[in-house]
Design a protein around this nucleic acid. Structure first.
Lengths: 144, 144
DNA sequence: ATCACATTGACAGTGTGCTGTCAATGTGGG
DNA sequence: CCCACATTGACAGCACACTGTCAATGTGAT
């Protein structure tokens, strides 16, 4: 059993994805470290920037396990970035939303992220980004 | 400060990369779980399939911290997949190589991986894979 | 209305990554 | 030759993902 041409390229792509994931998490940690955030905390806050949601919904949205998000969310409440409110649709599944501090920090983070990502994307063809994005989405569907 | 067109697409690509990384690790774990392996252990064994190397070299190759690989390698020795030999170039930096069991398991894993990845890559244009691969490599360089 | 089932939060435990520190071991400049 | 520096393995501790279990809480079918 050997690789097809597409299988061989796909294998290279997978290895490069592992590397990129590590590099991105590392970059994110550096970008927000001084705000008492990490890549993981930032992602949870980001999922709540539009509106309040229960933890399980965030987890589904991010493709993570419910309990992984739960622990981070509890931590973010302790640290004053999030607060909970009653969920009319489910007494146990409290809604999490940004506090004033959370809003303030996310505004700052948003500016830093835009600044950073614009620099990273500089001189890269939008067409090439779209091709790659479309492929990654297709792979996620195929593996999901 | 807002996103440039490329910056916006790049942000989407980053989120999709996080998802894909999770899905790939999960798929890898399922592929080799019954062999007492995980994605991480498999990757370390894979780095030793050509020839014996010291732990620190594997870490650099994989873009991971030295100590992360060290712990896994120690575990793989305990489990009989790896063995160490003296390194003529450095007394402390022992060389790690596959045992007979390690070779046997990696042969099986190689067949499973080829089978799996060929199926995943089926009906995907090699050209599209190459575009994405080239972009991911460029990003890794830019972030490294 | 009731009862089986799904969902949720809390808790406990594991695997994989990181960091920092220490002692032992190369390496190279003086 | 010797000493400063880099590299390495062991150890300890932390962050983030996973899983499984339990009790509490919706949901839907009968």
């Amino acid at each position: 059993m050997a690789h097809t041409p597409a299988g061989a390229k796909m294998t290279e792509l997978i290895i490069e994805t592992f590397r990129l994931n590590g590099a991105l998490i590392s970059a994110g940690d550096q970008l927000v470290g001084d705000l008492d955030l990490t890549s993981a905390r930032w992602q949870v806050l980001g999922a709540l920037s539009e509106r309040a949601r229960p933890v399980a919904e965030i987890a589904r949205r991010m493709g993570l396990a419910r309990q992984s998000v739960q622990r981070i969310a509890n931590c973010l409440v302790d640290d004053g970035f999030l607060e909970t409110s009653e969920n009319p649709a489910h007494r146990r599944a409290k809604l999490y939303r940004l506090t004033a501090l959370g809003e303030k920090v996310m505004a700052e983070v948003g500016m830093r992220q835009a600044d950073w990502v614009n620099r990273v994307a500089e001189n890269i063809e939008v067409q090439q980004l779209e091709t790659a994005l479309s492929l990654l989405r297709q792979l996620n569907q195929r593996l999901g």
